[in-house]
Design a protein around this nucleic acid. Structure first.
Lengths: 133, 133
DNA sequence: ATGCATGCAAATGTTTTGCATTATA
DNA sequence: TATAATGCAAAACATTTGCATGCAT
């Protein structure tokens, strides 16, 4: 809900890492950030995340393990969709060609959509092969 | 990933409350449960939630406030979809008529879907009226 | 000189766990 | 009985904050 974005060295670092890797949790971010800037603190990471979240640059989500993963919004749609394999835990991003349908639906419901989060849980090809049904 | 489900008085209570109210957090659940059973503890609520979650009866999700909401899976699809108003915070459930499309997509991606979580963030009709753009 | 940004450590809030007790779906 | 569930309090985590210091998108 804020407007201007002031980028510091450390905020940029956090953002760059997210840009490169996507959906990381705070500790993973801290670890990667420290490779480039050994003095960055966990508090700064969290503060940067909160800062960007307020400004709608990133969002956080949880996949059931009790902590938050952060990622940058999809540039076009502000949306994100995932396949999460319940077998191996792998997470794959899927892109937004069907987001239009959802917006369609939203319109019918008189809801003005700004962001969609879609998570699909199931088995990926490999895990499905191992565990046939 | 577990098989049998043993229902005790307290587990049933937790489940009944979720059935009646949907997406509650642990404290809300505790509060409502205590109206029927004044001696139930927070630990039991959490343990019941973990128990049902392992057995895929319920799932938890967060909407950005730092704690988890729990709800029962949709009976047919195992899926859930929400509109979350970023203005007033209201949450509305939407039903699954377009879930088929998603399953279609999943099939193309060779992913065997068992559950879909869809959250759409935006402004509800009332908030959109207040804050036109 | 001023206003942010930051590190550190402490505080908070949520969820989990160890252990003794109670119930038995 | 034997096993599992429960309450209570403490512990463990994830996240936030107060305060002193440092920096300058």
């Amino acid at each position: 809900m804020e407007q201007s974005i002031r980028l510091t060295k450390r905020r940029s670092l956090v953002l760059d890492i997210l840009r490169e890797h996507g959906h990381l949790d705070a500790y993973e971010l801290l670890e990667m950030a420290r490779k480039k800037d050994s003095r960055i603190s966990l508090a700064t990471v969290y503060r940067a995340l909160a800062y960007f979240r307020e400004r709608d640059v990133i969002h956080g989500r949880t996949f059931g393990e009790g902590h938050t993963h952060f990622e940058i919004h999809d540039a076009e749609t502000g949306s994100h969709a995932h396949f999460i394999c319940t077998g191996c835990g792998r997470l794959r991003e899927i892109t937004g060609r069907f987001m239009g349908d959802l917006e369609q639906l939203a319109k019918k419901e008189k809801f003005r959509i700004s962001r969609v989060h879609l998570d699909m849980f199931g088995l990926c090809e490999e895990c499905a092969a191992k565990e046939p049904r």
